[in-house]
Design a protein around this nucleic acid. Structure first.
Lengths: 135, 135
DNA sequence: GACAATCCCTATTACATGAGTAGGATTAGT
DNA sequence: ACTAATCCTACTCATGTAATAGGGATTGTC
C-alpha cells in the first residue's frame, strides 16, 4: 500500500484541524496556506473526509471544517482507509484469492500477505491524530 | 505497497523452480502451464529475476530457468523489491521528505511511515521461498 | 548444415489510477 | 443584493499496470 499524495495531504490537513479543535471551524484556504497544499485538491479531500464522517462542515460565509471527534479518537488507519483504501498489499481477501490461480497450492503465500496486512494495520490503528501532533 | 500481478506471478513461478531445484532447468512454457500464467508476461518477469541474479538460464533447445541459490536463501522481500520496488508505503525516504511540505512539523508522520516500512520488511525478509513451498 | 526449440529484446496497446484543474450551484452572513 | 464560503460534476494530463506482438540470437538434434 503506497501512500498517496491524497493521504499525505489529508493527514497534514487533519493536524491543522486538530490544533483548532474544538470549537472553531477552519476554512479550506487557511489550511491550504498553512500547509502549502493545492487548494482545489484539498477541497476534494476534505469532502471525502466529511462523507466518511471524520469532519463536519459549516457552509456559507465564515464556514469551514472541524473535526467531528477528538484527535485522540481519530486513528491514522481510519484516515488512510478513506484516502487510500485497505491497509494491505492487496485490495481484499476475495480478489486476492482470485488473482492467485490455484489458491490451494499457495496457501502459505496467502497467509504471508495477510500477516503483512495485519502488521501495518496494527501500527496504523494504534496511532491517533493526537500522536501525530505531539513533538 | 500493493502487490502487483507481476509480483504474484513471480512468486508462483519461483515455487515451481524451487520444487525442481537443484539440477534441472524448467522452461517458461512448463511454468506457465503448471501455474496457469500468461506465457509472454511470465517471460518478461523471469528475465527481470535473472537480471537481478535470482535465476540462471540456459538458452537454446532444452533450455530453461533455474534458481541460482537454494530456496532457503531466497527471501520474499528480495523478490518483491525486484518486481514491486521498495517494501514501503513510500518510494524512498528522500522523496517522502519532499512530498511532505514542512517536514519539521511532520516528523511524527514521517517516523510512523518508517515504522510501517520496517514492520513489513521484517516479515518479508524473514520468510524464504522454501517457507512458501511448505504445506 | 538445416531445423526446431528456446531464451532474449524492443515496441506497442489498452486500461486504470493519481494528481490535480475548471467552473459553476448552493448556502449563509452582512 | 453582495460576498464568502462549501458543494458538486466533469475534465485533463501523466504515469503505471498488465499484458501482446514480432521478431533476433543461441543451442541441441537429425
Amino acid at each position: 500500500m503506497r501512500i498517496s499524495q491524497k493521504g499525505l495531504y489529508a493527514l497534514q490537513a487533519l493536524t491543522v484541524l486538530a490544533r483548532h479543535y474544538p470549537g472553531t471551524v477552519v476554512k479550506i484556504r487557511d489550511i491550504a496556506q498553512e500547509e502549502q497544499l493545492p487548494e482545489k485538491f484539498l477541497e476534494a479531500i476534505l469532502r471525502d473526509l466529511k462523507r466518511a464522517r471524520l469532519l463536519v462542515s459549516v457552509r456559507g460565509a465564515n464556514g469551514g471544517y472541524e473535526l467531528r471527534r477528538a484527535p485522540e479518537q481519530i486513528l491514522i488507519g481510519d484516515v488512510l482507509r478513506i484516502t487510500d483504501g485497505p491497509l494491505a498489499p492487496f485490495e481484499d481477501a476475495e480478489s486476492l484469492r482470485r488473482r492467485i490461480r490455484s489458491d490451494a497450492k499457495h496457501r502459505a503465500l496467502f497467509q504471508l500477505l495477510l500477516d503483512v496486512r495485519d502488521a501495518t494495520a496494527r501500527i496504523l490503528d494504534h496511532t491517533s491524530l493526537a500522536d501525530l501532533c505531539r513533538p
